[in-house]
Design a binder for these strands. Sequence first.
DNA 1: ACTCCACAGGAATAACCGGGCG
DNA 2: CGCCCGGTTATTCCTGTGGAGT
Length: 403
Amino acid sequence: MSSGDIDNIFDRAASGKSLVKKRETLTIDYVPEKLPFRDREATALAQTLSTVFKGARPSNLLLFGKPGTGKTAVVRTVVDRLKKKSGELGITVNVPIINAKLANSAYKMLFEIAENLGLNKEEKKVVHFTGLSMGEATDRILQFIQNKKMHVILVIDEIDSLVDRNGDDVLYSFTRANERMGKGGFVSLIGISNSLTFKDKLDPRVRSSLSEEETVFNPYTVEQLRQILSERARLAFNEGAITDAAINLCAAMAGREHGDARKAIDLLRVAAELAEREHVLKVEEKHVRAAQEKIEKDTNLEVIRNATTHTKFVMLAITKSKNGNTGEVYETYSSLCKQVEQEPLTQRRVTQIISELDQLGLVSTDVVSQGRYGRSQKIKVAVPLATVQDALKDDPTFSDLLL
DNA sequence: ACTCCACAGGAATAACCGGGCG
DNA sequence: CGCCCGGTTATTCCTGTGGAGT
């Protein structure tokens, strides 16, 4: 380290500067002015939506693409502009953007739509957060839109998770709404889906209506990711606070998955945090590697921590049983339960929990047949043992069992 | 070629929760 | 108040199956 570098540290400390100057540009919520490599998609979307300014209903639209390909970001920038423009022109357009996955049930989603459209500010509450039948709730929302002659463009993010859990009944009502609505009000749907096979899960009627138009978002290439990251880094970091090599590594790591820009930016942010903690001058490749590990560990930790007690028991039982076939896991599991005087669940339920853990990637399973000795799963933990123990140590139920 | 273990994993159903309806 | 609604967790009962041992 040269004396210049040392001066540099002092200068930064004195002026209150650190590596990062604009942290918010490294979060997923930050939407840049202009989205690189997404012009085509953005103009197509703007084109479709522009019909509201003629007072007509825009076509329903489906957007496809893997996570982190800029779907949500494109929608948000275009919608922002749309709102600004409609304000200037004195046209009222309601554009609720809701995330079906975060809402985590069809009913809560309806509730959020209602909130967004301001149903609950009127007279008295119209749609509550439970208690009504689904049909009733949708009817009330549509009725409201019709009465107020509202122009609504409803954006449903992660629409595939809605259909996976609740089927397409709700979507059916919304796509059909315009026929019933008469003149004055309308509803357009914009669905954002992570899954490319999403359309197959829909009823044909819903499918044709929902995808009057569609756009596919291709994954970013590593080179594109690199450019996106460089641009963000220019905004976020102080001059010379990050090496090109670090940026390239972020791009390469995120590109290896499927061109996930969100992941790339997460990596960059966490790497910066780690570098700052070390009080070094530059974010380098090793910080990016460390960030990768940290992100993985943190998500696993969270998942285990938020799991139900029995899921935790099962997780622990899997780490404790060496052989890892279902019968053995179940036995260690029940003995763990009895140690703390809890009623163990059925084996059927436990296999279900195991397959849930498998889906979360905490555990890997493999069906193997051992001939005479039956057919079973070979279950292994897919995360470091320390992670499991860390996650469980805060739970008082497990404090005695971890030794 | 047949058996039969030790489960996998689907289907139906129940128990429970928070909350609205009349 | 009793009943309905949707959601989640758990139970009960069930049929299906790869391959080591015979």
